Simulated assay, not measured.
Amino acid sequence: MTTLNSTARLTGLAYLGLAISGMLGFLLVRQQLYVPGDAVATTANLVGNEVLARLGIAVDLTVVLTQALAALWFFKLFRRVDAFAAGAIAAFGLVNAVVILVAAVFSATALDVALGGTAPAGDQAATAQLLYELTDASWNLGGMFFGLWLIPMGWLAWRSGYLPRSLGWVLMVGGVGYILSTYVIYLAPGLADSSSALTVPATVGELWMVGHLLWKGVGPATDTTTPTQAVSSPRPS
């Protein structure tokens, strides 16, 4: 159990890094730089806040790093419970990391263009805006894979017996909410702003998971066998 708890706390540490860097990137950086539908304002923000823009790129890279590490540590934590589901967490988490890496490439290129790099027809503002819109689209579509990684995570939390089963349900509901919110963004653009409500269970579940792994680790596994499985075969006479 000591080794398992060490794995749990390293997993929680990586997940905490993912949560912090993700919130910093969205709340501190993107909202101050990207102005939807206003190429001139976005470019002016990039030029006038170069340090902040570079910090945003570094934060996005931290998201990529911590997402990849969390994916691998979750696999190690749960592989003995169900190798296929643990592999699903790792696979979807790593795909999401690649999507965010692509978003970081777009935002880094937007900054280069805004600061005087080459741009088609010399229209730096329009090109920088397009690149930031691609960044935004990458983050939105990445929500699909983030939802997909929460579902097996929740199932394994429920199945393992050494994490609260209610936590597993919250994570699975949150994963479905993330997937639905991705569809809402593109199928019902008028409801895009309210679609964030669908991700609330995911946020609750993630914070709960991080806190539990770091504070309590994992408890002893409870018996998850069904009564039928528990019945032993009769001994030969």
Rank of each mutant, 00 (worst) to 15 (best):
T3K: 14
L4W: 07
N5P: 05
T7V: 10
R9V: 12
L10I: 13
G12K: 08
G12R: 03
G12N: 02
L13Y: 05
A14R: 06
Y15D: 03
G17N: 05
I20E: 00
S21H: 00
G22A: 12
L24R: 00
L24W: 00
F26K: 15
V29N: 01
R30T: 03
Q32V: 09
L33P: 08
Y34D: 02
Y34N: 01
Y34C: 00
V35E: 14
G37D: 12
A41L: 04
N45D: 08
V47G: 14
E50G: 10
L55P: 04
G56F: 01
L65V: 00
T66A: 03
Q67R: 04
A68S: 06
L69S: 12
L72C: 13
W73Q: 06
F74D: 07
K76S: 14
F78V: 13
R80A: 15
D82N: 15
G87I: 09
A90S: 07
A91R: 07
A91P: 03
N96G: 15
V98M: 02
V102T: 10
F106N: 04
F106R: 02
S107P: 11
S107A: 07
T109H: 08
T109M: 14
A110R: 04
D112W: 02
D112Y: 04
G116C: 03
G116Y: 03
G117P: 03
A121G: 06
A121T: 09
T127N: 09
Q129N: 09
Q129L: 06
Q129S: 04
Y132C: 07
L134F: 02
L134G: 05
T135R: 07
D136C: 00
A137S: 06
W139N: 13
N140I: 01
G142C: 02
F145E: 14
F146H: 07
F146W: 12
L148S: 08
L150P: 03
I151R: 04
I151G: 08
I151P: 09
I151M: 03
W155T: 10
L156M: 12
A157C: 10
W158E: 12
R159M: 09
Y162M: 01
Y162E: 09
L163D: 13
R165C: 10
S166W: 05
S166H: 07
G168A: 09
G175Y: 01
V176S: 03
Y178D: 01
Y178S: 01
L180G: 05
S181V: 01
T182P: 05
T182D: 07
Y183W: 04
P189V: 00
A192L: 01
D193H: 02
S194C: 03
S194G: 06
S195I: 00
A197V: 13
A197Y: 15
A202M: 07
A202L: 03
A202D: 07
T203S: 15
V204C: 14
M209D: 04
M209L: 14
L213F: 11
L214F: 02
L214D: 06
K216E: 09
K216D: 12
A221Y: 07
T222M: 13
T226R: 07
P227M: 05
T228Y: 08
Q229Y: 05
S233F: 12
S237N: 14
